[in-house]
Nucleic acid binder design. Structure first.
Length: 577
RNA sequence: GCACCCAUAGCUCAGCUGGAUAGAGCGCUGCCCUCCGAAGGCAGAGGUCGAUGGUUCGAAUCCAUCUGGGUGCACCA
C-alpha cells in the first residue's frame, strides 16, 4: 500500500476528467506529475507539482490549472482540502482516516507492507564481492559485500527476481602466485625452511592450507618441478580459499546464489563465442593503440593486438581483448562472463566494484551494451574506501606486512548487524569512516543503536501490556490514533513504501538506513511526549481498548523497522542490555 | 594529459527522475524523569550548498568552464 502512489493516481484521474471536460488538451504526458511529501509539514500532507509541469505544454498559467484541479480534487472524499500556494503548488490535506488506515495496513500486511511489484518480476543479476580467491576478505571487500547484499534484498523487496552472484577470478596469474605460496607452506609443513619472496603471499592464513595439502598428497610434490604440481595445487588452493571466502560471507549472513568460475570460460569456447558475437557486429579489429598520455613514453612500444571497438558504445579508447602473443587479456573473460549473464536472460545487470575499478566501468558497459544490442542495462556501483579508526585514531593496514584488517576482524569485534548497518550509513560513492568504538557506542550518535532502541522500546511496551493483562489480539480501533503527534508518526510510516521505490529505482540501499533513523526519531519523539501528555502514552491504565489502539501504532512502527532492518540484513534486537 | 567520484553548518553527513523559508547527528546554550527504559526528548544559535556563467516559472540538484581533494589509466588480474 503506497498512499503517495494512490493519491497520485487520484490526481492523474482528476486531470483526465479535466481533459474530458475540455479544460485541458488531450495529448498530455503526465509522467512528470509527482505527488510528494512537502518539505514543510505546515504546507499540508502531500503536494503536487501538476499545475507547474503542465503549464508549458498546455500554454496555460499554472495557477489557472491549479485552481481547476482544486475543484476536482476536493470532490474526492479522501482529500480534505486542497489549495494553491506559491507559483502553483497544490497542497493537499488528507483525512486522518487515511493515515489510520496506513497503520492498519502495516499491521495487516506485516513485512509485506512496503513490498511492491515495481520490479515486475524482472530478472536482475547483482554481482558483488568477486574478490580474488587468494585470501580472506578484508574491510574493503566488506563494504562491497554489505552493499551488494542489501541492494539485492532491496530489489527483491521491490518486486525483482534477484540473483546474487560472485565471480571467481580463478583464471589468471594471481592463482599461480597463490599456488606457489601454498607450495611453500607445504614444504614448511614438511619441516623445510622457506623464504617468501616478492610475488608470493606471505600471510599466515595459508599455513593450514599447506598442512592440508601435505595430508592430501604426502610428500609426492616435495622436490618436484613446478610443472608437476602447479595445476593440482592451484585447484586445491583455490577451493580452500573459496571455502574461506564463503565462511567470511556467512559470518555477515551473506549467501550467494551463484559462484561463477572464470576458469570455466577457458578452453570451453565461451570466450571465443563472446568475441565472435562482437566480431559479427563489426566491433573487433586488429590495430595499434595510441600511447597513453602522461605515462613514461620510453616504456611504450606500439604493438598490434586484437581490439574491441568500445568507443562505439561510449568508451574513451578501444580496449585490447587479446595480447600480441595471442593470449586473452583479462578483459576477454570478463566480456564472456557478461555475455553469459545476458544469455541467461537477465533483464538488468548490476556490478558492484571497489572504487579502484572505476576505470573499468566504461568498457564493461560498452561490452554489455554491444552484446545485448543496448537491451540489457548494466549499472555499475562503485563502493569507495573504508577508513578505519580506533579510539578516534586512524589505523593503517599494510598488505605487504600481511597486517591487513580482515572482514572477520571487523565482524568478530562489532558483530554482523552493526557492521552491516554502519557500512550502509553512507552512500556508496562517498568514502566511509568506520570507527570501532563509535559503532558499538550506545547513544543516538550511533544510528544502529538508535534504531534498535526504538524497536526495543516497542517490545518493552508489549511486555508491559502483556503483564497488565491487555489482550493484544483484540482488534484496535484505529480512530483513536488521532492526536497530531500520533498522526505525524503514522505519516512517516506511510512514507515507507514510497521510500522503498525510490531506493530501488536508484539502487541506493543507504536510503533505507537513513529512513529508519528518521522513523526511529519520530518514534522516540512521540514516546517522550508521553512524559508531558499522559494521553499520548501507549499504555492507558484501565482502558484496555484504548491501549490496544495506541499500541497498534507502536507495532506498526516496529513492522516497518523490522522490514527495513531485514533489507539491510540486520537482526533486530529484542531488548537493549 | 585523460576518465570517473567527491565538495552542503565549526565537525561527520542526508537532501527523493529540478520545487516552497536547504535538513539531521556531534559540539555549543538553555530546559524536561513522583510518568510505558532520560541508553531518550524539547528549544536556541550556527549556511554566499567550492567558484563563475548558462538552461527555466523555479537549480544544492541539469549543462559548460574553473578551483581543490580522492581513485584509476598500455600485451596486471
Amino acid at each position: 500500500m503506497n498512499l503517495f502512489a494512490d493519491i497520485r493516481t487520484a490526481v492523474i484521474s482528476a486531470l483526465e476528467t479535466m481533459q474530458a471536460a475540455g479544460t485541458l488538451p488531450n495529448d498530455l504526458d503526465f509522467a512528470n506529475v509527482a505527488v510528494e511529501p512537502p518539505r514543510d509539514a505546515a504546507h499540508g500532507d502531500m503536494a503536487t507539482n501538476a499545475a507547474m509541469v503542465l503549464a508549458k505544454p498546455t500554454k496555460m498559467k499554472p495557477r489557472d490549472i491549479a485552481d481547476a484541479l482544486v475543484l476536482q480534487l476536493t470532490a474526492n472524499p479522501r482529500i480534505e482540502s486542497a489549495d494553491v500556494a506559491g507559483p502553483g503548488f497544490l497542497n493537499m490535506r488528507l483525512s486522518s482516516a487515511l493515515w489510520q488506515d496506513v497503520v492498519g495496513a502495516a499491521l495487516e500486511q506485516g513485512e509485506a507492507f512496503g513490498r511492491s511489484d515495481m520490479g515486475q518480476g524482472k530478472k536482475v543479476n547483482v554481482e558483488y564481492v568477486s574478490a580474488n580467491p587468494t585470501g580472506p576478505l578484508h574491510v574493503g571487500h566488506t563494504r562491497g559485500a554489505v552493499f551488494g547484499d542489501a541492494l539485492a534484498s532491496l530489489l527483491d523487496y521491490a518486486g525483482y527476481n534477484v540473483t546474487r552472484e560472485y565471480y571467481i577470478n580463478d583464471g589468471g596469474a594471481q592463482v599461480d602466485v597463490l599456488a606457489r605460496s601454498v607450495y611453500l607452506r607445504y614444504l614448511e609443513a614438511h619441516g623445510q625452511e622457506v623464504a617468501f619472496e616478492d610475488g608470493t603471499y606471505p600471510g599466515d592464513y595459508l599455513v593450514p592450507v599447506g598442512v592440508e595439502l601435505k595430508e592430501k598428497v604426502g610428500d609426492a610434490y616435495v622436490g618436484k618441478p613446478e610443472s608437476d604440481w602447479l595445476l593440482d595445487v592451484r585447484e586445491f588452493s583455490t577451493e580452500k580459499m573459496m571455502d574461506l571466502v564463503r565462511a567470511d560471507l556467512a559470518s555477515l549472513g551473506i549467501k550467494m546464489d551463484v559462484f561463477y568460475s572464470e576458469k570455466s570460460l577457458y578452453g570451453t569456447g565461451r570466450i571465443e563465442a563472446a568475441i565472435n558475437a562482437l566480431k559479427d557486429k563489426g566491433l573487433i579489429y586488429e590495430g595499434v593503440l595510441e600511447p597513453p598520455k602522461g605515462k613514461k613514453p620510453e616504456d611504450w612500444e606500439p604493438r598490434e593486438q586484437t581490439l574491441f571497438k568500445s568507443t562505439e558504445h561510449g568508451d574513451d579508447v578501444d580496449r585490447p581483448v587479446m595480447k600480441s602473443d595471442g593470449a586473452w587479456t583479462y578483459f576477454a573473460p570478463d566480456i564472456a562472463y557478461h555475455y553469459d549473464k545476458v544469455m541467461r536472460g537477465f533483464d538488468e545487470l548490476i556490478d558492484v566494484f571497489g572504487a579502484d575499478h572505476g576505470g573499468y566501468v566504461k568498457r564493461m558497459k560498452a561490452a554489455v551494451s554491444a552484446l545485448s544490442d543496448g537491451k540489457v542495462p548494466l549499472d555499475i556501483k562503485l563502493t569507495q574506501l573504508v577508513k578505519l579508526y580506533k579510539n578516534g585514531e586512524p589505523f593503517k593496514m599494510s598488505k605487504r606486512a600481511g597486517t591487513f584488517v580482515t572482514l572477520r576482524d571487523v565482524v568478530d569485534q562489532v558483530g554482523p548487524g552493526a557492521t552491516r548497518f554502519h557500512m550502509l550509513t553512507r552512500k556508496n560513492d562517498a568514502s566511509l569512516d568506520f570507527d570501532f568504538d563509535k559503532v558499538l557506542e550506545q547513544s543516538k550518535d550511533n544510528p544502529v543503536f538508535y534504531v534498535q532502541y526504538a524497536n526495543a522500546r516497542v517490545n518493552s511496551v508489549l511486555r508491559k501490556a502483556k503483564a497488565a493483562g491487555i489482550d493484544l489480539s483484540a482488534t484496535p480501533d484505529l480512530t483513536q490514533i488521532s492526536h497530531a503527534a500520533e498522526i505525524t508518526l503514522a505519516k512517516k510510516i506511510a512514507e515507507w513504501p514510497r521510500l522503498v521505490s525510490i531506493a530501488a529505482r536508484t539502487n541506493e540501499p543507504h536510503r533505507i538506513a537513513f529512513y529508519l533513523y528518521d522513523l526511529a526519531s519520530e518514534f522516540h519523539a512521540l514516546w517522550n511526549r508521553g512524559n508531558d501528555l499522559p494521553e499520548l502514552r501507549f499504555i492507558q491504565d484501565g482502558e484496555d481498548a484504548t491501549s490496544v489502539s495506541k499500541i497498534a501504532l507502536a507495532r506498526a512502527t516496529q513492522v516497518v523497522i523490522c522490514a527495513g532492518l531485514g533489507i539491510l540484513g540486520v537482526e533486530p534486537v529484542e531488548e537493549m542490555r
